[in-house]
């Protein structure tokens, strides 16, 4: 079977293009993809925005004391993220709640909407996740220096470690600090992209009569896993942002 997979064109049956789903192309007409071109990615970004608007604005338009179903979903996410920020960063982190909530709902809705068949998954693109990761990282680092000035660097200087170890620890701390955005963006993009590739590969096998029952069962199983991954990755990204924000607000351990 692997041989078939390697030479799909000659056999004519199995065709594997698991990466084609990530191709960016203009949504209307043809042509080059310029930075302003409305692409399939733009369309799905718009759908994500509309879904967020539907859940958070239309869902809560009744302002009901006893919430409707959609309103309680919004309230659940609100309470979840609010409590997360309060628990991790403390009371003074609460004023960054809208920013973190924006990150969370974008990643969550992007991950879940990407699970709709034939959809496009923005969070599987490294350019998108790197923008999120490095953007947050730069913003949090600037915030740390604005709040604490040069004493923000004490974050890397373990004052309770033995003196001769402190420079070594400081180097390691700086490296681990600088790796944070990389791990943030690769974790999210890698997880989502890998899940979609695996789904596509199983879907390719489903065209083969012998393998199709197993392949379809596999798709169902992987799809369930991907639903978990979609939620967990949004959660992990957000909670790490909260932890980094805590470092910026309280660098003195």
């Amino acid at each position: 079977m692997t041989q078939v997979a390697i030479e799909p064109e000659t056999k004519g049956g199995l065709v594997f293009h698991p990466l084609d789903q990530f191709i960016v192309k203009p949504a209307f007409g043809d042509g080059a993809v310029n930075w302003y071109t409305v692409t399939n990615l733009t369309v799905w970004m718009g759908i994500i925005l509309l879904a967020i608007f539907a859940v958070f604005v239309l869902g809560s338009r009744g302002r009901a004391i006893i919430p409707s179903r959609v309103q309680s979903i919004g309230e659940l996410m609100y309470g979840f993220i609010y409590k997360m920020i309060e628990d991790i960063t403390g009371k003074d982190g609460v004023k960054y709640f809208p920013y973190i909530m924006t990150l969370f709902v974008f990643i969550l809705f992007a991950n879940f909407i990407a699970l709709i068949p034939m959809s496009y998954s923005p969070t599987s693109m490294i350019a998108v996740t790197a923008t999120l990761g490095f953007g947050s990282f730069v913003a949090i680092t600037i915030l740390g220096f604005v709040k604490h000035g040069a004493s923000f660097l004490k974050l890397f200087w373990m004052s309770d470690a033995p003196l001769f170890l402190r420079p070594i620890i400081a180097v390691i701390e700086v490296i681990s600090y600088l790796v944070r955005p990389v791990s943030l963006s690769i974790r999210l993009g890698g997880n989502i992209a890998a899940g979609h590739v695996v789904l596509k590969v199983f879907a390719g096998f489903a065209a083969l009569a012998v393998a199709s029952p197993a392949a379809i069962l596999g798709i169902i199983a992987i799809y369930g896993l991907e639903v978990l991954v979609a939620g967990i990755q949004a959660y992990v990204f957000t909670i790490l942002i909260c932890v980094y924000l805590k470092d910026a607000l309280h660098p003195h351990h």
């Binding site: 960016v24 604005v57 709902v105 974008f106």
Partner: peptide
């Protein structure tokens, strides 16, 4: 560039929806 541009547009839109209306 396309991805980053539209991501930033979307994030700004979400941020305004969240911070001005929803939250």
């Amino acid at each position: 560039p396309n991805q980053i541009f539209w991501l930033i547009v979307t994030l700004i839109a979400i941020f305004f929806v969240m911070s001005r209306i929803a939250l």
